[in-house]
Design a protein around this nucleic acid. Sequence first.
DNA 1: AAATCGGGGTT
DNA 2: AACCCAGATTT
Length: 349
Amino acid sequence: MKTKKQNADFLYVGRKLLDWYQIHGRDLPFRKTSDPYKIWICEIIFQQTRIEQGLNHYRNFIERFPDVQTLASSQTDDVLLYWKGLGYYSRALNLHKAALQIINDFDGVFPTEHDDILKLKGVGKYTAAAVSSICFGKHIAAVDGNFYRVLSRVFADDFDISNSKAFHYFSELALKMMPENEAGHFNEAMMDLGSEICKPRNPLCESCPLNKECLAFNLGKIPNFPVKTKKVKATDLELHYSFVEFEGQFLIRQRKDDFIWKKLYEFPIEFPVEWEQFITKQKTIAHKLTHKNLTIQISHIRLESQDVFTEFASENGFTIINEEESHLKSFPKPLENYLTNLFKNTSNV
DNA sequence: AAATCGGGGTT
DNA sequence: AACCCAGATTT
């Protein structure tokens, strides 16, 4: 009897959330479509990425790769180019692999079953749930960071969100609130509330549609939720690059896929000691990566011989490009900034 | 279960 | 400087 009453209360809160979403939900480009390809792309892009940050990337990506056939038949480097600056580059590599999976394993048609969607590279339980609910109406919760924050506060629930069972735990909680046949809208509503109202710090509780029911708010314990115990400490990383230049051309090489900046392009790391006489300037860049304090030293080397330049390139597997061609490559952010700075200064002369 | 993977915004 | 963001994969 008590359980029955509680479940009714859960549903009541869920409907309130949906009512709020109908009026205050964000107007986003991918809200206008139910094309699973586009929803999939946007879900990958917005993993660990704020909407404002990835919106232009989403538009450009869809314009360049409008369907799965186009994506699958493209070069990996072209996909990476459209991912430039987004970070977590394995997402772009997996996106391309998954497009080939869809062509080869699913006859070029985006899978409609949750378990099949989950088989796609780079698609985990959150993304599979999001696509399944938004595109195919599956009654399932797409639990992300917003869910953890909103649900833990509304129910003053101290379940540790760094626990590996947190997804399942809050998924069950969300399902109690989710009205029938509204999974997609419900999931989007939870994300909008978490993003616009129930923010990590200084949430706008006075404007929250759930503030009458929110236990943490009414107990004055909003800062206590969500509970997260796992903490990672930052490590230091130092890189030494050489920008090797000869008459407007310079050397680059593609990175491996086993460390940071997977498959992105970079400058040479090693160079002959005798080239030190050609160093025209050195620059140190401090760059902050997640959990990494990164220091990059760049030695700018202007060679005086075409032969040495081209021979070193071919013997060490470097590619020779100029400014114009460099815009067709994806560089790590600090190197991208270095190039932007360099070309800006030279073009002004 | 813990580590790793970017870049950017907020406080 | 710490924390978080429409998380997934590897170890």
